[in-house]
Design a protein around this nucleic acid. Structure first.
Lengths: 118, 118
DNA sequence: TTTATTCCCATAGATTGTCTAGTGGAGTAA
DNA sequence: TTACTCCACTAGACAATCTATGGGAATAAA
């Protein structure tokens, strides 16, 4: 049986989330380390299911962020007693978060200037 | 000699503009038909040079939008007396503009909920 | 004990949209 | 004639995502 749709409007995937996933992951890790599943769930939940995070996007993103030194990983045990790879924000990642947040704000302002000129 | 940098922060290209270009083109055409050069200039100017539109992105986007029936094209003569392909918004494109605008707003709200929880 | 289910990590291949780096033609100015 | 600007367009590379899997390990059900 196919899964029931979540609710409300169709969730947003790649198409418009592009480039934003990294920012959202960094932000999610501010409160403390987390593993993949938790990160994806947090983003979906805190966006009220508007944003969807597919596994095929999540793991490449995590590896990408780790390669760049913005997050670091270690093995641990999840709340459900499963082996899980935890990610934590590095100092470099914290700077990135600040930078990417203002970049995001700037883009939103710029797009809105076009969509809704004064 | 290399071109001088425009001004202020580095302009935003693809990386974060992704998926937004179509929306911006549609919006630009609301006031009337325009050709490629004008469209790119309008987006850059009205965003106060925050958004950059490369030709290598612009023309594929225009062809894409035309394929989908959201814009239509015709040959004309530019203000500088050059042959130019003008694009105009179709009724279908007008609907798309409305849909994509609220979609954009929804994404911005969702991302902001994560970046700045209440 | 066996089987099914859930949790978690991970990858391969296709697709999409962008970028870089050009080509070419036609009007205009030097 | 030459150089320059305006305008359209393309090829090839690249980056981030998606779809569709696979697989291991803990738990629950049979």
């Amino acid at each position: 049986m196919p899964a029931m749709p979540k609710r409300g409007n169709p969730p947003i995937q790649g198409e418009m989330l592009q480039g934003t996933l990294d920012l959202l992951i960094l932000k999610t890790l501010v409160v403390g380390p987390a593993h993949g599943h938790t990160i994806a769930y947090a983003i979906e939940h805190r966006s009220e299911d508007v944003l969807q995070v597919e596994h095929g996007s999540l793991y490449p993103a995590l590896h990408r962020l780790e390669d760049r030194g913005w997050i670091a990983s270690f093995w641990g045990t999840s709340e459900n007693n499963r082996k899980a790879r935890y990610y934590r924000l590095t100092p470099k990642g914290r700077k990135q978060l600040t930078a990417q947040t203002s970049r995001w704000d700037e883009i939103v302002r710029a797009v809105n200037r076009i969509l809704r000129p004064a």
